[in-house]
Amino acid sequence: MRINKSFSLVLGSLFVGLLLVIMIISLFYTPYGENVMSITERLQAPGSAHWLGTDNFGRDVLSRIMVGAQTAFLVGSISVAIGLTCGFIVGTLAGYVGGWVDELLMRATDALLAFPGILLALLLVSIFKPNMFQTIIAIGVLSVPSFARVIRSGVLQHREADYVRAARGIGAGHFNVIFIQILPNIISSIITTAALSFSTAILVEAALSYLGLGVQPPDPSWGRMLNEAQGYLNKAPWYALAPGLLITLSVLGFNLLGDGIRDLRDNVNRGG
């Protein structure tokens, strides 16, 4: 986009890919157990034994960050799946059926959007005891409106297109029209929204966990690690750097990926 069209896509894929690799490696190998405490090795500076140092319980920061990538991906992918599924149902119903159904669903969507992101998440997590499951649900609900809007406008745009009329003319049912005719045409905007929702999910998860209302110990979460690190800023400033950097890089990666896909689509649409 601003920088260079394919540049965002390449860089975004690179960051997201790197993160995926870290996550996959962490499934099979971490330098230390992510929950192994060692009182004698508390708050050690980065060195040859612990590349990123140790935390206040003597746990290896690198190992915890690697496993933290699993948490981020788990929360991100399931909540995006929830948002996409619900958003697809809402968006298609609103766009395809139209009329008062559209009006009702869109007003509800507007109301959800009226809650500033983190506030809605806080309201939702305050209902149950904080854990990973409810964090995922809260973030999933948060991402429904953007999917619903994108899908609705896509459906509206294509609903009366000639090719859809033609398909109807030769007897295509609603299912066929929605999934076979329209969906392929709006899939790139859905993927863009998914990438951007993924980055929001990572940010909100980190914020909730930082506040102590998201992923609970002992599950490693980057946000939670920042919360712990803040208590030791004087003694161990390095501890606060790595988890924040990882959050930033993942969010940056998914944002760039989303932008890149959108630019690619715009180029194709313009015939460029």
Binding site: A206, A207, G223, L226, A240, G244, I247, T248
Partner: peptide, 15 residues
């Protein structure tokens, strides 16, 4: 601006 959007504000605060 890309970094500005990606850096969590609470981490920025800690920094």
């Amino acid at each position: 601006t890309q970094f500005g959007l990606a850096i969590p504000s609470f981490w920025m605060g800690i920094i």
